[in-house]
């Protein structure tokens, strides 16, 4: 009887031991947008841009295990293992003085190699059209201000809706993003540049129209701004 009690105690003790984990863990951390460094800048064509309003709707966001140069499949659309998801979208005032919280991301630990994201418009697989996941009345990108060069000043007020090109795809995919979120990670900070957004727009070549300049759907100007928003390295991510 005595050793039966010892045995029972031993088994219970053993059963209660810390068994460890299977390694990777589910984690959560904040996503924040860093403020635009300077609302006034000069573009490559010499135009001095002054932004009076700059709002970006950002999300959903996905962090991926795939290298963006992965050749076996379509590196721009294949994520591999998803290491983080921000399911909602938030509208971000790029001219705000401080970091802007964009939401809370759920993910797993591991090495992030790339990212995919939308600008409010998200098109889940299986649906016939994209869904707007941002704030009501907002757009993917709103940029307003003036462009001045040689005594000529143009006012502009651009409002762009950037949508994925097909169901199940993100508007921006295959973007390099290196980070290794861990349970100690509290935040990933996103930085974008309005200067990059506007880099394909040549104010010298804008067609005559009543100011402020606006975007006409299907116009070259709209395509230029869309390219600026979605290509190159439009965003960078920093984990801490």
């Amino acid at each position: 009887m005595k050793w039966l009690a010892i045995l029972t105690f031993s088994l219970l003790t053993l059963a209660g031991c810390d068994q460890g984990t299977t390694g990777r863990e589910m984690i959560e951390y904040d996503v924040a947008g860093a403020p635009e460094a300077d609302p006034t800048f000069t573009d490559d064509r010499g135009w001095e841009i002054t932004l009076t309003r700059a709002e970006l709707t950002f999300g959903p966001l996905v962090f991926c295990s795939h290298q963006p140069t992965f050749l076996k499949s379509d590196s721009l659309t294949d994520c591999g293992q998803v290491l983080g998801e921000l399911g909602a979208a938030a509208t971000w005032d790029l001219l705000a003085a401080d970091d802007v919280p964009l939401g809370r991301l759920t993910g797993i630990t591991g090495q992030v190699h790339s990212a995919q994201y939308d600008f409010g418009w998200n098109w889940p697989a299986g649906l016939g059209s994209p869904l707007w996941r941002g704030e009501a009345g907002a757009a993917s990108l709103t940029l307003a201000g003036t462009a001045a060069k040689g005594g000529v000043t143009h006012a502009f007020d651009f409002t762009l809706d950037a949508k994925p090109r097909a169901a199940g795809l993100y508007t921006v995919a295959g973007l390099a993003a290196e980070g290794s979120p861990s349970p100690a990670t509290t935040r990933v900070t996103l930085a974008v540049s309005a200067r990059k957004f506007l880099r394909y727009i040549d104010f010298d070549l804008l067609e005559e129209q009543a100011e402020p300049f606006t975007l006409v759907p299907g116009s070259a100007l709209e395509n230029q701004l869309r390219l600026g928003l979605t290509t190159g390295t439009p965003a960078t991510f920093t984990w801490r």
Partner: peptide
């Protein structure tokens, strides 16, 4: 290629 940086390590269950 699908998992270039496995997150598991020695000792994981």
């Amino acid at each position: 290629p699908e998992n270039p940086t496995p997150g598991e390590k020695k000792g994981d269950l």
